[in-house]
Amino acid sequence: MSEKLNIAFIQPDLKWEDAEANRKLFSEKINEISNEVELIILPEMFTTGFSMNAENLAEETEAETLAWLRENARIKDSAITGSVIITENGKYYNRLFFVFPDGSYKLYDKRHTFTLAKEDETYTGGKERLIVDYKGWKICPLVCYDLRFPVWARNTVDYDLLIYVANWPQKRVEAWDALLKARAIENMAYCVGLNRTGKDGDGYVYNGHSIAYDSLGKPLTELNREDEFTAELSLDRQSMLETRSKMKFLQDRDKFSLDE
């Protein structure tokens, strides 16, 4: 078990619906990350931007982007996570990959499809939450609109790190800022929110505000950055567990189950 987890997250200006250009962009940025990093986080739909053009953009699971993720995970000896447009059995998914350094991987299909943008009319929502065990850390990766639904993120399994990858627009960034901090505090876990910047092909503007919080809601990275940047930081599991032991808020959590 590793008490420290060195992570990096990349806030980019994505190239609209251009998977090859975005993979090239991220290859360059990943190459600049230090070799001490053990987990690299990429945004939602990191090869395309948040597009409903799934018919023309979707890949099979075992296709070029997964091969690219595996290769970069191998080269950097680091896990990599982010979501991609995937087609499977005649349906489309906003699918997050969590790829381990050895090339194995876990999948999470975004549960809450964004009805305001009619994402639900194109993509099928997932049914199961994913908890990843990596280097002794329990990690819960979620996608964008999932952030608005605290029950889905509720820390009933004592996970250590909550991740949201997103394309969250500027016009609602106040909600992004507030909810990320709330998720960290209420779940007594590290919380990382990774957004994009720039303007997409549908005219939506994004202003980033990617951030990491500790288990009490203290920011660990610079607030409200709107430019392209890569952040590297080290998370301390023992410090988090000591906070939980001292505060004991999670011991008072409600017991419940989710009905479909």
Rank of each mutant, 00 (worst) to 15 (best):
D252T: 13
P43E: 10
N6G: 07
Y206W: 05
A189Q: 01
A189S: 05
V143E: 09
T122P: 15
D158M: 03
D18E: 09
E242A: 08
F229Q: 00
I211R: 09
F229W: 01
I41H: 04
D158T: 01
F114Q: 14
L220K: 11
R172A: 14
A189F: 00
E28T: 03
E32A: 13
L39S: 04
L116M: 14
L116I: 14
K127F: 10
Y190W: 00
D120M: 07
E60Q: 02
L69D: 02
A54Q: 03
V84H: 15
T81A: 09
V143K: 04
C191V: 10
Y108G: 03
Q238T: 04
K218W: 00
D177Y: 13
K138I: 04
N31W: 09
A212M: 04
K246D: 01
Y159A: 08
F50E: 13
M52Y: 05
T122M: 15
P101C: 12
R154I: 04
L180Y: 01
G198S: 11
G198K: 11
K171V: 05
G125M: 02
R148T: 07
K255T: 11
D259K: 13
V37W: 06
F98Y: 05
L250D: 15
Y105F: 06
W168T: 09
E36M: 00
N155Q: 01
D214A: 14
I7A: 08
K4M: 15
M240Y: 04
E128L: 04
Q251P: 08
L69R: 08
I139Q: 12
L57A: 05
T122V: 15
E88S: 15
T48N: 10
Y145Q: 11
Y108F: 09
P219F: 10
E121W: 09
T115G: 04
A178R: 05
D13H: 08
K29V: 02
R225C: 10
L25I: 01
V192T: 01
T65M: 10
D18M: 09
L162E: 12
Y206H: 09
L107D: 02
W16Q: 06
G193M: 07
A212K: 06
K199I: 14
L258K: 03
K135I: 02
S27L: 08
R70C: 03
S245K: 12
V173Q: 14
E119I: 12
Y145L: 05
V143Y: 03
Y206N: 03
E119A: 14
T221M: 06
D227G: 08
A79Q: 03
K127R: 12
E119Q: 13
P43Y: 13
M1T: 15
K127Q: 13
L66Y: 03
A73K: 06
E119K: 09
